[in-house]
Simulated scan of single mutants.
Amino acid sequence: MKWRNRRRSSNIDDRRGQRMKSGAKFSIGGIIMALIAIFVFKQDPMQVVSGMVGGQSSQSTSTEQTNYQPSAEEQDVYDFVSVVLADTEDTWTQIYRQSNAKYPHPTLVIYRDRTPTACGTGQAASGPFYCPADQKIYLDLSFLGELKRMGASGDFAVAYVLAHEVGHHIQTVTGISSKVRKAQSQTNNAGQNALQVKMELQADCLAGVWANQTQQRTQFLESGDLEEALSAAEAVGDDTLMKRAGVPPRRENFTHGSSKERMNWFKRGANTGLIGSCDTFNGVI
């Protein structure tokens, strides 16, 4: 991906030098269990974190500033994601303008270990996530190393992850998310998971729309970039994660979609560049 010497977003809240002051401590075993719950069983990261905190989250909102100095490698990644965020801003602003609407930019929060959010305590173990309550995307850069270990390498794999979270922002500001939550409140656990899968697959498709529209606007893609995004989509499919953990994949437990589904919906958005091609709900909501 061609990204150096390009515009960087100013909508970044850099909290890498902040530390939450709290008496809550987590064991290595507890963190591992949280990772399994989130990446294998796709539980809500905020619910997992709340369970780990054990009711102490209300006492864990204060922070202190430290003299944190990032490595040159980490700073390079920080600069990269700021360019990707800027690209999402420019592309979605252009798409919104076609409908005579103004695109509300989300904020990207870069943090280390733990940070307060409007959705509860954010934690590195939860991976990247979007909080609709404050319309912010939360990212601990250490997750990108985990992404590589999961078989998703390359800079565009990282761009795909960020664009997917921006897709959730689009769903929030357009009212799709609230419709999904309402529908989920009227069904059982299996139905709730099925709706969540549709929402995640739509975010994958919207990430593909962003890739298509940004390529038309800037010619930023390099050879192999889309393959990197597809590898990332494959690596985080529910069935792939469950198999890796030694758990038999069961469709009723899926919350993000299979590897094949995630790749297909990203490809659909990337091939068409049209938001209308991303109707994963097909009249359900």
Rank of each mutant, 00 (worst) to 15 (best):
K2M: 07
K2S: 07
N5S: 04
R7L: 09
R7N: 08
I12T: 09
I12H: 13
D13I: 06
D14T: 01
D14F: 03
G17F: 02
G17Q: 03
Q18L: 14
M20K: 02
K21D: 11
G23C: 08
F26S: 07
F26N: 06
A34N: 07
A34P: 03
L35C: 03
I38K: 09
F39T: 15
V40S: 13
K42G: 04
D44P: 03
V49L: 11
G55T: 07
Q56S: 12
Q56G: 03
Q56K: 14
S57D: 15
S58V: 07
S60E: 13
S60K: 10
S60H: 08
T61V: 01
Q69H: 10
P70D: 07
A72M: 12
D79I: 02
D79S: 12
F80N: 09
S82L: 00
V83I: 01
L85D: 15
A86F: 01
D87A: 12
T88D: 11
T88Q: 15
T91E: 00
W92D: 05
Q98D: 10
S99Y: 13
A101F: 00
P104L: 01
P104T: 01
H105T: 15
T107W: 02
L108C: 07
Y111S: 04
Y111V: 00
R112K: 14
D113H: 14
D113V: 15
T115N: 14
P116E: 08
A124G: 03
P128V: 07
P128Q: 03
Y130K: 03
C131H: 03
A133K: 09
A133P: 03
I137R: 01
L139R: 00
S142R: 13
L144S: 00
E146P: 06
E146W: 10
L147K: 00
R149M: 09
M150C: 00
M150E: 00
M150R: 11
A152V: 10
S153T: 13
G154C: 10
F156V: 08
F156I: 09
L162I: 14
L162N: 05
A163G: 05
G167Y: 04
H168V: 10
I170Q: 06
Q171I: 09
T172S: 13
T174V: 04
V180E: 10
V180L: 12
R181K: 13
S185W: 01
T187W: 04
G191Y: 12
Q196D: 15
M199Q: 15
E200Y: 05
Q202H: 10
Q202K: 12
A203R: 11
A203C: 12
D204K: 05
G208M: 04
V209H: 04
A211Y: 00
A211L: 01
T214R: 13
Q215G: 04
Q215Y: 06
R217A: 14
R217Q: 14
T218R: 15
L221I: 06
E222Y: 08
L230G: 05
L230P: 00
A232Q: 08
A233H: 08
V236S: 06
D238T: 01
K243N: 14
P248F: 08
R251M: 10
H256I: 05
G257S: 00
G257C: 01
S258K: 04
R262A: 04
M263H: 05
N264L: 06
T272I: 07
L274H: 14
D279M: 07
G283L: 05
V284Y: 09
I285Q: 02
